[in-house]
Write a protein that binds this DNA or RNA. Structure first.
Lengths: 344, 344
DNA sequence: AATCCGATTGACAGCGCTGTCAAACGTGAA
DNA sequence: TTCACGTTTGACAGCGCTGTCAATCGGATT
């Protein structure tokens, strides 16, 4: 019923191996052969069977993306999606398709005690040609161990530790935060509040460092009372904003380490009757969809997640396999919207 | 190196077929055999190879989700994710994992002239046990044709036409919009503005119908000047909001057909100095992440996308294959946040 | 013309699993 | 005890493809 390689070979009057060669761009294929085979493929509308290829050959034409199951469950419960993940997926998907690969998304329970066993079994069962690791799990040593032991190539997105293991794609969070800070300073702000992310995230630390470095470079002092740690949620941003705005000497700008917290600051400001951006400039980090849809729209740093994933996927795909470096830095962009204005 | 079914059979002292039987819960398996095999599986840490299973057997243990490539490209360009899709994926992923299935996401170029050929080839190459169709493409007749011709089971999410083709999971948009309208009316609103979605979307039409029906049922007149059509974007919501609020007799509430447009209304209101929710109640539809993060947080309808996808996936999985109905309705929830208050 | 060599093609054996069908095993009835 | 019949297990042939290795071809070389 469905055409197989035998049908194509028969129609083209060649051996199945020749068909295979043409389809896989093997070496030493004469133009004549190629033409015959391609014609037969065309008329039969033939597509090689993925399973058979994977079973017989070394390649499975499969890229697996490992996604945190627990995180996923949380999103499920809260009824909301994960912007980061879907952008990541876009990037990976587009590259996979270009190369004729397929993307398989796998939920990984990083909290499971039998994680290693489970992962190994998964790798053996799927035999993916490469694995995409998403933060914060790009740094899980157990996962790295299994992947290395199994010899499966993998790319870590936004990895922060053990930088020599596997391949990496990352962004310069520190510099981005410094740029944003410099942007506020250039606007004329001098008293700037900062809402840090949880210290357990390396990205949080980098962003904070960037902020502090930029302040120092411009000879500005960081008032410890204006620096509060949040946990990347809207609520923590609202609380932090309320705390900062309740200080005797209010800052003229607040830089939150991510957009959700920046939106929380906007909410706190509204509750306190502080006009944004007239009386308070606010900026975030990430450029989530909400950043563009808020009132006022949020100035923020756009992390090119899709591009990162695309780059990561390319790193896993054969043409470049091992040829280039093992790490790639992608550029961020400072998106200047209406939430930041010079101080009045 | 990696254990195969032969290793397990050898260790357990049985035939490979028996191992296969135990693993696939075949009939007529004695407890003794089962115990022996399971023990061997355990010690060898064995997992059947997906490709081999798929090649040899009828089932591929694969569910494919078809995603619109063009939409994806747009998201890519704009640097933002797709909340709907990622929620959908969560639901599908969780169910797949429970059943030992795998989810493969496939970009489908619905605009391609050779769509049918391409799709058919994809189905043959992947042999998925089921396909998840996402809106607005759940209604593409070419896709349905190919799927039916190929005999691949599929579930359409939010399908609106040809309701007898394939299986379906859907939400009652009309009733949800009616409920939201009734909610505003119960709050005391009488003059209510409505921002419709593009008429090309069936969901848009249903929502509008629901609004109009609820108004009628409560004996309220719909002022044509207060009904504007948008295109589901923030900007169109802002423009529509500006237009409606510019009318001589302002409404006390505006119901937008989706959250992005509702957020646009919030922006328009702010620009015109109309306080929300004090002077204007605003509500949306969808419960996107931004709805919770806006100021004020948006009252909206939560579409249980993850649950829909989970239900859809279950429909495709073997235990229920064909046993239950072919359509399943899921419940929405009216999320009452701070953007709606009684008129002052 | 004979020889050699690289380029091109094909025959064939699996990859690891499931489906088919037959064999072995048990049970109760005769 | 013997036979019939349902239950449990195994032998074996592929599924559709790629890897290996040998065969063939077509010139260049002598």
């Amino acid at each position: 019923m469905t055409a197989t390689i035998y049908d194509v070979a028969a129609l083209a009057g060649v051996s199945i191996k020749s068909v295979s060669r043409v389809l896989n761009r093997g070496p030493n294929v004469s133009p004549k052969l190629q033409a015959k085979v391609l014609a037969a493929v065309e008329t039969l509308d033939y597509r090689p069977n993925l399973s058979a290829r994977s079973l017989a050959g070394a390649s499975s034409y499969l890229i697996a993306a490992f996604v945190d199951a627990e995180l996923t469950l949380e999103h499920w419960r809260s009824g909301r999606g994960n912007d980061y993940l879907s952008r990541l997926e876009y990037g990976a998907l587009v590259e996979c398709r270009k190369a004729g690969y397929h993307l398989m998304v796998e939920l990984v329970d990083y909290g499971s005690p039998s994680l290693e066993t489970w992962l190994l079994a998964l790798l053996r069962s799927l035999k993916p040609d490469g694995v995409l690791l998403t933060p914060p799990n790009s740094d899980d040593p157990r996962v790295l161990d299994v992947l290395e032991r199994n010899g499966t190539p993998f790319v870590r997105l936004g990895a922060e530790i053990d930088l020599d293991r596997g391949m990496r794609v990352f962004m310069d969070d520190r510099q981005a935060a410094a740029d944003m800070t410099a942007h506020l300073i250039a606007l004329g702000h001098r008293r700037i509040g900062f809402i840090a992310g949880p210290g357990s995230y390396a990205a949080s630390r980098k962003r904070r460092e960037g902020f502090e470095a930029a302040m120092a470079r411009h000879g500005l002092e960081v008032d410890p009372g204006l620096v509060v740690e949040g946990d990347f949620t809207f609520d923590s941003g609202r609380r932090a904003g309320t705390a900062i705005l309740g200080r005797p000497e209010r800052p003229t700008a607040i830089f939150a380490s991510n957009d959700d917290m920046a939106l929380g600051v906007l909410n706190a400001a509204a509750a306190l009757g502080v006009a944004t951006p007239a009386a308070l400039a606010v900026c975030g980090f990430d450029d989530t969809p909400s950043a563009m849809l808020s009132t006022p729209p949020l100035t923020t740093i756009r992390q090119p997640v899709a591009e990162m994933a695309a780059a990561a996927t390319r790193l896993l795909l054969p043409p470049s396999a091992g040829q280039q470096g093992h790490a790639e830095r992608v550029d961020y962009a400072l998106i200047d919207r209406l939430s930041t204005r010079p101080p009045s």
